[in-house]
Nucleic acid binder design. Structure first.
Lengths: 342, 342
DNA sequence: TTGAAAGCGTTACCAC
DNA sequence: GTGGTAACGCTTTCAA
């Protein structure tokens, strides 16, 4: 049977109230007694019982704020599913989730939305946002004031975030290249279409991709790179032009969004199945195109897991009186072809 | 705030004890009152609070028995990791896990081991065993007597098992074929090495594999099939002979164990990287050979997840008074190449 | 500065 | 048959 607060109290010769005060660093305990109690709880290997905590704290349930720039981006709806699953899982353990979604990547808009979450009484945050100085400063302020923050999907470097839950972008790019190299040995004439050259994750994918091609000594030429800016029409136009201008292109690497537009261009030019086409993420549009054989494979990152695994450590963190500081959780780099789209 | 047993008692005009008796179908309640209470708890949408249950039941913690034929099989140690993770996760929620492992696939041995788990007081079981009539009969008896059984990794068809947690073997075979077909278009001269022709999962993989090759119209010839019987030396010998007798073989499909022996034969004949080699499962030996480039890719099935996700539904099942009957949980078919071995 | 007690939702047990 | 009460481990509040 695990050690309880009561046992500590008995051993220390004080009341449970005092032990509680010590264990939560609340004021009003004589320093020497506090030290004594602390030592005993250490020696006994005390770990708080979550069921007891939950029951006692039932009047102020833990409210976690989740922020995603997910409006209009189907990828994030899977992350949200993970949040929801965690909420359902933990609801009768006294956890509530407040969701906030915005469109696009304006730092001000993001900060405003997060502020609203805090104002609504959230005691912890899971955020997927932009890693800019302004954002970092704002979040570090929050963390300072006692609100732990989990970085989901996009890391917040050099902040005091509790942990990062998301994929390894470099590995994703490396995997795309590695699989491609298993599929062909001929010289690659590459068209790379990224989302935005400002997005760190996108750049990391490209870096991993080209590094692996070089390591594997795959002969390749980078014919063209451009941004889709998450806009299908724009991506369609640019792809059309690039493929017409450079008929030698035999491989299209789609780093981020714009997939529908890009593939429409490929199909209209009758190049379907004549080019290697690789993409990232497992969303409806990529799945459909993989099924049709237009895209050879797509590299996923377990978005739902990212949502679920953001909430879970927060739960344990609070339940352990902030002692179980969670590790980063890096999701698997998932290869999806037609047969394992599940 | 969720509905409590107390509220039901108030509304029904009875005591909490009576409500408890009704909700647990315990005798000693007048039928009309029982009916009345049942209706109210329905109307109010009562869901038991897990924290309360855990605390009250703390003296008889839920003991779950886990059985694996894992001795000498590294695959199962990952499943075990999942069991352990669940145990750690739920330990202060009053769950204990009793593990039992045996070597090999003798039904009598398996039944004996499971009997011991039951004798030691396990109130539920997670088992990975053989799907034979004798086993089915034994397990159905246990289930009848009130011990729910989760089938892990291998389904127990036509039993009253609570659910199946494991992979889709057919999909795994299909995926192997699908990826292979992306890697080559030439005629395939196949050597297939299965574990045992008696193992349903192995046969399903082969079925999925060949079906997909046919669907994709990949020209192929089955040069030879034999069993490794999970024995590396035997597999080594047979592989050596097969490859020498049939120099036209250009693809080796390793369906189950014996990987080390098979690949040793391939390497000794200097055929490394000259053949396509595919395997299943992500264990140390397959990982190493993928890293060395001897195996092109291996198809995993998330064994740790299988362990964890067997315990979790049992926990919820008991906590919900056996009302949340869990769905089957099919793990992902995971493609692993050198770059995403994580 | 400390102790005592109530209460969270559930179960088990004893008394009526 | 039914109601009341103690107990699980913890937090919070009130009293000393």
């Amino acid at each position: 049977m695990a050690v309880t607060i009561r046992q500590i109290a008995v051993v220390a010769g004080v009341s449970r109230g005092t032990v509680d005060r010590v264990l939560h660093n609340r004021p009003g305990v004589k320093p020497e007694i506090a030290e004594h109690v602390r030592k005993i709880s250490q020696d006994l290997g005390y770990e708080p019982n979550r069921a007891g905590k939950i029951l006692a704290a039932r009047k102020q349930p833990l409210k976690i704020g989740c922020f995603l720039p997910g409006v209009g981006n189907p990828f994030f709806s899977d992350v949200m599913k993970g949040f929801r699953r965690a909420e359902a899982e933990f609801s009768d353990f006294g956890i509530t989730i407040e969701l906030s979604e915005v469109k696009g990547y304006d730092v001000r808009v993001h900060i405003k939305a997060i502020k609203e979450l805090v104002a609504s009484g959230c005691q912890a945050l899971c955020v997927s946002t932009i890693d800019t100085p302004e954002m970092r400063e704002y979040l570090d302020g929050l963390i300072q004031s006692g609100i732990p923050v989990v970085a989901v999907n996009t890391d917040l470097s050099k902040t005091k975030r509790l942990c990062y839950v998301g994929c390894d972008y470099v590995e994703a790019g490396r995997t795309a290249a590695g699989l491609l190299s298993l599929m062909t040995t001929e010289q690659l004439n590459l068209l790379i279409i990224t989302g935005s050259l400002k997005m760190k994750g996108h750049n990391e994918r490209i870096r991993g991709f080209s590094r692996t091609l070089r390591e594997k000594k795959v002969p390749y030429k980078l014919v063209e790179v451009f941004e889709s800016l998450d806009n299908d029409d724009h991506a369609y136009q640019k792809t059309l032009e690039a493929l017409q201008a450079h008929p030698e292109i035999n491989c299209v690497y789609i780093v981020a969004a714009g997939v529908a537009g890009i593939c429409r261009a490929i199909q209209e030019l009758g190049l379907e199945r004549k080019l290697h086409v690789l993409s990232h993420d497992q969303i409806e549009v990529t799945c459909q195109l993989v099924r049709e054989g237009v895209i050879d494979f797509t590299i996923g990152q377990e978005p739902e897991e990212q949502g679920y695994r953001s909430i879970q450590p927060l739960f344990n963190y609070f339940m352990s009186d902030r002692r179980s500081v969670p590790d980063d959780y890096i999701t698997n780099t998932v290869i999806k072809i037609k047969e394992n789209l599940s």
